[in-house]
């Protein structure tokens, strides 16, 4: 599946540990490198020849109209697509130079965490939700410390510290989503994938999440799918525009929004379609 020979993109090899965008941040290290990625649902091709280098410790936003393949692309990065039947992928995805497609699944998903569109806490206590990852993965250190640290990183600790044993379902939608972020952070992932994490939330909750993403960049590389172009502009350093399963443009966010090089990007961001 993983085609070893198709790494001949401009970024491949050891030298490609540098970012995709020379003009943007030449010093940024590449965390994930995707080359010649094609993805199929049955006979239907959903992604066409995607090439993308995700810079470390920054936020990369994926934008595009509904059904363009943003979420599908996101789900290839941690191989979540494997939970669906009749899917096929070719091309290569490298995480720190290691082939994602060859990696042990549990290890891969520990390194690349994911937060979903709809908050999906387990029907367990707040504590047990966050502790789930460390428990199944057997992370060393004290469990309660790991839980507190993750809740703090997700900016939820102060709101729940006195209710750790309460059901996660007692939290508000925004809190639940931050709990899901804390749950993903508890296994110390290098990369965090966010699939429209704010689309089910009110503006105040959205602002809180955007703010906490800012703090997370120190320790995490973030790839975020969003419908909301203002949000992409606010939180991301790099942005990729996808259309009909093809990556039309990938650039530093300010440039993509001010001087897009492709007319289709311009049409989308100025609201002419999508």
């Amino acid at each position: 599946m993983a085609a070893g020979g198709v790494r001949g993109v401009p970024l491949a090899g050891a030298a490609a540990r540098r970012s995709a965008e020379p003009e943007g941040k030449p010093e940024a290290v590449t965390r994930i490198e995707v080359s010649h990625l094609n993805f199929f649902y049955g006979a239907r091709q959903a992604l066409h020849d995607i090439n993308l280098a995700v810079p470390a410790n920054l936020v990369t936003a994926l934008i595009g109209p509904s059904g363009c393949g943003k979420s599908t692309f996101l789900r290839t990065l941690n191989r979540m697509y494997e939970t669906q039947r009749h899917t096929r992928l070719d091309g290569s995805i490298l995480l720190d130079g290691e082939d994602v497609l060859e990696m042990d699944l549990a290890l891969l998903r520990r390194r690349i965490g994911m937060v979903f569109q709809k908050p999906n806490p387990f029907p367990k206590s707040v504590f047990d939700n966050v502790a789930y990852g460390p428990r199944i993965n057997g992370i060393e250190g004290k469990l309660s410390d790991a839980v507190e640290r993750s809740l703090r990183r997700a900016a939820l600790w102060d709101e729940v510290k006195d209710h750790l044993q309460k059901s996660a379902y007692a939290l508000s939608g925004g809190q639940q989503q931050r709990l899901c972020i804390a749950r993903a952070l508890a296994v110390n992932p290098e990369v965090l994938l966010l699939d429209e994490p704010c689309s089910a939330l009110d503006p105040v909750s959205t602002a809180k999440i955007e703010e906490l993403l800012f703090g997370l960049k120190e320790s995490c590389t973030i790839v975020m799918v969003t419908h909301n172009m203002q949000q992409a502009a606010r939180v991301s350093e790099y942005a990729a525009f996808l259309l009909d399963g093809r990556m039309i443009e990938y650039a530093p966010t300010p440039r993509l929004f001010t001087t897009p090089s492709d007319p289709r990007t311009e049409a989308y961001i100025t609201g002419r379609f999508g």
Binding site: N78, M80, T83, L105, A106, L107, L108, R109, R110, G113, M114, F116, K118, N120, P121, F122, P123, Y132, G133, I136, N137, C180, R183, A184, V187
Partner: peptide, 20 residues
């Protein structure tokens, strides 16, 4: 969504079924 959340944390199918 609960199954996805569990599997996204590196849990196997069996772990997900038993624990979630």
């Amino acid at each position: 969504g609960l199954r996805e959340a569990s599997e996204a944390l590196g849990a196997s199918r069996t772990t997900t079924v038993v624990r979630v």
